[in-house]
Amino acid sequence: MPSDAVVHVVDDDLAVRKSLAFLFASDGLPVRLHESASAFLDGLDAIQPGCVLTDVRMPGLDGIELLRRLKARGLRCPVIVMTGHADVPLAVEAMKEGAVDFIEKPFNDHLLLAAVRGALARRAAASETDARTAAIRERLDSLTEREAQVLEGLVAGKANKVIAYDLGISARTVEIYRAHVMTKMQAGSLSELVRLSLAVERVAR
């Protein structure tokens, strides 16, 4: 996981914030404390990536509303909610809103640390996927219109002759375009070319 990944603790209880700060710092995890969901959202633009650990019940904006607002902003940072035993139904609702896990109070330190590290690992994996997808999109954008048409035919499983017929060009010309597409997409084989194209399509859905 990235060394600069930060655990953001959102809780209106100062004692809880201090306790969690000590726990995470003792385990070598950078941590930032936020006294409310509103305070966290207000400083969101300057916040380092990582994961969020938030109480589900807080005055003003609660943990569920925080999840909804993060989702509305298109932010995919993993969120873990903290809940009392009586608030488990709320925690389930939070997971339906996108929380990756919930932790019941009083905490088991080992379980909490495992949940947080799991969330940070998930964030790191998502960031790597986003970077790969962006790189593939750049390669796709570098294709000419005709190269993109040939690629579309290849991904559809069409033979060179069929693509040539569809586009009104010769099979030899299709082979030339195909070679250009393979080079620009940095694909070593047709199967790899198809996988690259489908990876971007899945993300776009």
Rank of each mutant, 00 (worst) to 15 (best):
A125S: 06
E145K: 15
A91L: 01
A72T: 06
G98I: 00
P30T: 02
R123K: 13
D4Q: 12
V203P: 00
F22E: 13
F102T: 09
L29D: 11
L196N: 11
D87H: 06
G28V: 03
P78V: 00
V79F: 07
R117Y: 01
V52T: 09
G50T: 11
E145S: 14
D130M: 06
G60I: 02
A115E: 04
H8T: 12
D55C: 03
G157K: 09
A187Q: 11
L167D: 10
K158L: 15
G63P: 01
A119K: 07
V31Q: 02
D109V: 01
T183C: 06
D12S: 04
K158D: 13
A199S: 15
A119V: 02
D166H: 05
G188H: 09
I80H: 06
V162L: 14
L14H: 10
E104C: 11
S3V: 11
D11L: 04
L120Y: 02
S36T: 07
G60H: 09
S142D: 12
V155T: 15
R68V: 01
G98P: 00
G188P: 03
H34P: 12
E104I: 07
E175Q: 13
G50D: 07
K161R: 13
D12L: 04
K105E: 01
A86I: 06
V88H: 03
A121N: 13
T133S: 07
L193R: 05
M1D: 12
R57G: 00
L75R: 13
L14W: 01
G157C: 08
R123E: 11
T133Y: 05
A119G: 05
A15S: 13
V81R: 00
S3C: 05
V16E: 03
R146K: 14
L66N: 08
T144M: 01
G118Q: 06
T144Q: 11
A15E: 13
A124N: 10
D101E: 09
Q186V: 13
A94S: 05
A199E: 14
L196R: 15
R123I: 00
V10Y: 05
H85E: 12
G118E: 10
R76P: 06
R137G: 05
T54I: 09
H85D: 08
R139Q: 14
E97R: 01
A125N: 07
L41E: 09
